[in-house]
């Protein structure tokens, strides 16, 4: 089946001014590849500052003016040019954004979901969308500040689902929701996928992602370090040491933090981005490490788990 979205060797960098008028090019995403087929939920799991949100903004063509994008993005078989991105975003490609700040603080919820339309059909659609996410009609006449954190998030999702999108990009849709609502929200993304859409789920929550994703890509410091079927993760088959560290940091799996922090943009060396924090680090990890296939998945590691050295 033809993929809905295909991202090939995507790199995103920013121009910043250093000292005086000297320009510095800051790479934030490097050589990212990703494929989403109809009916698939693909989760991109990574920590804050790893460039996950920028991936979403890159696909939608809403990166800031001082950014550069290289690589190829194909949407339904056609290159996704900036012009085409502008035409399809909001209808065929929708974004469920991360923060409540994406809501207009001076506009009531109802008109926001209807995007300003006033006809009876739009009214009906917005009510149905709200109802689907467990919100009553009275929510339509509330301003964003009157919503609780969880309600605001459901309003954001309702806004996106009021259209019939081919590709749904969900940027951290679950923080702030209680377990039941989070499961329900993710269930709705699953439904959208089962209806033939592709879903790109951007999240830091490995555990929740595994409950609905078909495929999972793990993102670290702007690079994918591992990609595999979700079933591999649930079976405890992890490939990259960073993925293992994420797993061990779950409150129910030991709550063990590894020391250090993710390198910022421009601080990543030539080798594996995780090497400086990796318990299995060796000198050769600091040279470029290729992204290679391993038992049905992809991994950027010289000494992955489960492979004999």
């Amino acid at each position: 089946m033809e993929p809905i979205l295909q991202v090939k060797d995507l790199s995103i960098s920013f121009t910043q001014y250093g000292r005086g008028t000297r320009q510095v090019l800051l790479p934030v995403i490097q050589d990212l590849s990703l494929t989403i087929r109809p009916g698939q939920v693909v989760a991109v799991v990574g920590s804050s500052g790893s460039g996950k949100s920028l991936l979403a903004h890159g696909i939608l063509g809403i990166l800031p003016y001082n950014s550069h994008m290289a690589g190829e993005i194909t949407f339904l078989g056609q290159p996704l040019t900036p012009k085409r991105a502008e035409a399809v975003r909001g209808t065929e490609i929708v974004l469920v954004p991360q923060g409540v700040t994406y809501l207009d603080p001076l506009m009531k919820v109802g008109p926001q979901i209807r995007k300003g339309r006033r006809d009876q059909k739009a009214r009906q659609a917005s009510r149905t969308a709200l109802k689907r996410y467990g919100l009553g009609e009275e929510v339509e006449s509330l301003y964003p500040f009157e919503l609780s954190g969880g309600m605001a998030r459901r309003v954001l999702i309702a806004t996106a689902a009021a259209e019939t999108p081919k590709l749904v990009i969900a940027d951290e849709p679950t923080p702030g929701l209680d377990a039941r609502s989070a499961q329900r929200v993710l269930g709705h993304f699953r439904e959208l996928a089962d209806g033939g859409a592709g879903v790109l789920l951007i999240t830091h929550d490995l555990e929740l992602a595994l409950t609905i994703a078909d495929r999972v890509a793990v993102f670290y410091a702007g690079e994918t370090v591992e990609e595999a079927d979700a079933a591999d993760f649930t079976a405890g088959k992890l490939r990259h040491p960073y993925t293992r560290a994420l797993w061990n940091a779950l409150p129910q799996n030991g709550f063990v933090p590894i020391p250090g922090a993710q390198p910022g943009p421009g601080e990543v060396g030539k080798g594996c981005p995780f090497a400086p924090r990796c318990p299995k680090q060796r000198p050769e990890c600091l040279s470029p490490v290729s992204y290679r296939e391993l038992e049905g998945g992809l991994v950027r590691c010289l000494y992955p788990e489960g492979e004999m050295v």
Partner: peptide, 8 residues
């Protein structure tokens, strides 16, 4: 909104 390692 934080990743697991940063949370821990």
């Amino acid at each position: 909104m934080l990743d697991l390692i940063t949370q821990a």
